[in-house]
């Protein structure tokens, strides 16, 4: 498994391919601290006003802040609005 991942990573490096496709990684875009955009997620684990936990391949993305709202959610994408104070990548 580890060997497979390394192979893919080096493949992506060699051919300059986007890693999120080959490695099934999430692509996170932040607009200041007010908007967040996660592609390639695996579902919502927990959400409330202050905390949103998004499942991603190989871990979890923990967003802490105030007035957090899931603006839109699709099977591959999630938009989050609100004041983002804290972003944690839990493996």
């Amino acid at each position: 498994m580890n060997f497979k991942k390394n192979f893919r990573s080096s493949l992506a490096d060699a051919f300059e391919l986007p890693k999120e496709i080959l490695l099934d990684l999430p692509r996170v875009t932040l607009v200041g601290n007010v908007q967040m955009y996660v592609q390639n997620h695996k579902g919502v684990v927990e959400y409330s006003d202050n905390v949103i936990r998004v499942s991603i391949s190989g871990g979890e993305l923990i967003i802490k802040g105030e007035d957090l709202t899931i603006k839109n959610i699709y099977s591959e994408e999630i938009f989050i609005n609100g004041l983002i104070n804290h972003l944690e990548y839990a493996v």
Partner: peptide, 9 residues
């Protein structure tokens, strides 16, 4: 495939 918007708790 249900589209949900403005989710708050």
């Amino acid at each position: 495939g249900i589209i949900l918007r403005d989710i708050r708790r």
